[in-house]
Amino acid sequence: MPSEQLPPEGRVRIRVRPGKKKDVLFLSGEEFSADLSAPAREGAANDRLLRNLSQWLAWPVSKIRLEKGQASRLKTIVIAGMTGEEIRKRLLASVRASPNKD
């Protein structure tokens, strides 16, 4: 019986800083970081991160989920339908396209 090929599922780690003035994605060394305008309360920052990732990746939010780090600043995000390399390329393009963070 042939095995059904599953779509790719990539992961990315992002360090978040909630409670900032605006939402910004940037590189800090080799690590992606995100300033979020949402507070770190009741999952608001996690929800904002997933919505922002949807925009930054140009990918449906329904395909993006928080795998690890619900109460931590370091989050592991899983994106269905993309490889880790594709995720990194899209996030790098988004960082380059955005104005510098304050």
Rank of each mutant, 00 (worst) to 15 (best):
V12P: 02
S98H: 06
L66M: 05
A45C: 07
I77K: 01
L36A: 04
R17W: 08
N100Y: 11
E86M: 04
S37M: 09
S33N: 14
V16R: 00
S98Q: 14
R96F: 05
R88D: 04
Q55L: 14
L6D: 11
P60H: 10
E4Q: 13
A40N: 09
S54G: 13
L53G: 00
F32A: 03
Q70Y: 15
Q5W: 14
Q5V: 15
R88Y: 05
G19S: 03
V24M: 03
V24S: 03
A44S: 09
S62E: 08
T76I: 06
Q5H: 12
R73E: 14
P7Y: 08
A44H: 07
R11T: 11
P7I: 10
Q70N: 13
N100W: 11
L92P: 06
V95R: 02
A80P: 00
P2D: 13
K20W: 02
K101I: 12
S37D: 05
S28G: 07
I64H: 01
S62Y: 03
S54C: 07
F26H: 09
G43V: 12
N46C: 10
A71T: 13
K68G: 01
G43E: 11
P39H: 08
L92I: 12
P18R: 01
K22S: 14
V12S: 04
S98C: 06
N52G: 09
G29Q: 07
P39G: 07
R13A: 11
L53A: 02
L27V: 06
K101Q: 09
G19N: 03
G81M: 04
L91S: 03
S3I: 14
N46W: 06
R51M: 14
S62V: 07
Q5S: 15
K68L: 07
G43R: 08
R11P: 01
P39F: 10
M82H: 00
G10N: 02
V61H: 01
N100D: 11
F26M: 11
R73T: 15
V95E: 02
P2T: 14
E86P: 01
L66H: 02
V12Y: 01
L74E: 13
P2C: 08
G81N: 04
V95F: 07
D102K: 06
R88L: 06
I14P: 00
R88I: 06
L50I: 15
L74K: 10
V24C: 05
L6I: 10
G19K: 00
V24T: 09
D23A: 05
R17S: 07
A71S: 13
P18E: 07
E31R: 12
N100K: 12
M82Q: 00
L25W: 00
G81R: 05
R96N: 09
E31Y: 13
D35W: 13
A38V: 10
A58T: 11
K22H: 13
L92H: 11
G81P: 01
A44N: 06
K101S: 14
S98V: 08
T83Q: 03
G43Q: 08
R73P: 10
E67H: 14
K21V: 15
R17M: 08
K22A: 12
P8I: 06
